[in-house]
Simulated assay, not measured.
Amino acid sequence: MNGYFADEHTLFKGVKVVPPNSELVIDSEGLEIHDIDNSLNEISTVKPNSEYNNKLKQDYIEAFKAVPKKSKINIGVTGGKDSRLALLGLLEAGYNADTNTRGFLDNPDVQMGELIANKLGLKHRITEPKITDAKGMTVNLERKALNAMIATSGQVYGYENINHQSIYKGNVGVTGVAALSLKGGYSNLNNVNPANPKVEMVKRFLPLDNLLLEGSSKEYQIFLENLVTSDFQNAQYKHALFYRNGRWTSGTRLAKSYSSDIYSPYYDNHFSKSIIKVKKSYLDNGFIQYTLTKKLNEEISKLPLVESRWGFEKDQPTKPENYYSWLNREPLYSLTKMASYNWRNLTLEGNNMFVIVLKKYCCLTHLIKYIKL
């Protein structure tokens, strides 16, 4: 269900997943599938104003109410946009939380995570990767890949901190995962406006067709083409919502629930339906995400990000009078390779094919095949 072909099919012949935003009704008359509401037709139709932004803020806070009260909550915080917004929403909803960041002390994510926690008066824990006596790291890529596959039923390309846990510990965690709905889908595609959207969808989401058995991807190709009902941007956003957030990422994160209760506000159905109504241009440039952050805590919204800026001020401040505050939000970067260590981005000289396979394939047989090669 979380493999190379991200559509409504399953591993079982003739068995499909119920389409997005629909319900399956079985009664004495038989079986029918109905749309739950008109949400999919309302994607990218609302130009946000002050009133609608307040509604988004309230819906966002309500999204945390699924987390049990009086829980001891731990939330990961980095220098990015998603985790700081998740933390602010959690606090605004009335929860107590400790924070943590994984990485070396000179990693800007670690430094910014600690700064955010200190400004909010929260306890913060840093987990550093283990260093050998030779001041190096030994990373067994095969073991990491296999652990991830065992934990996620075959989902290789996910999160480096997902391991197989057989004992339920009962911890409560909140994450900023699955914020694609706030960002207009795949950020690297937000400026792509091809003359032929259907051809572009196949090009982007079926890039390794030449490695598959001839004809095996024909049905998936048709599915991708049919996902285009208006333009490419609308289609890639729907793909991000339904098949990245709704199936791929959620399937990967399910492994976390084997040992703990994990919550993310970005999976809340009501909040998601409010967000997808916003015109995509306000999502693509980070404006809505920044607006929510600012409404929850203006001081935190003014802190710099790691390796990026808010999209709407990427090249220059929005107003001349904001110039000095814009300069103060200069992105933070790692100064050494060690500081920027992240297994997801790890590339070893002479082993590029292995890393590419890890990123592209979700099937153990493919992985073993390329390891042998």
Rank of each mutant, 00 (worst) to 15 (best):
I33H: 07
A179I: 00
R247D: 09
K238F: 04
L327R: 12
Q233V: 02
G76N: 05
P68C: 06
L208T: 14
S44K: 07
N161T: 13
L364M: 12
K169F: 05
L346K: 09
R244T: 05
K337L: 09
N41Y: 10
V15F: 12
N140C: 10
D109W: 07
M137A: 06
T152I: 06
T336N: 10
K130C: 04
L120E: 10
T347V: 14
L327W: 06
Y258R: 14
R143A: 14
E313S: 07
C362Q: 10
K16W: 08
Q58Y: 07
L254H: 10
N161F: 14
V278Y: 00
Y52E: 11
M1K: 03
F232E: 01
K69M: 07
L208Q: 12
C362T: 02
I150K: 10
V174Y: 01
K16M: 08
V25W: 08
L305Y: 03
D133G: 12
S83P: 11
N54I: 03
S44D: 11
I126T: 14
Y168R: 13
L85F: 01
D82A: 11
L296P: 00
K294A: 13
V18Y: 05
R84K: 15
Y95S: 09
Q165M: 13
D37G: 11
P194S: 04
L213S: 11
I150T: 01
N74Q: 14
L91Y: 02
D268N: 15
L11P: 02
L303H: 05
R244S: 06
V46M: 07
L31R: 12
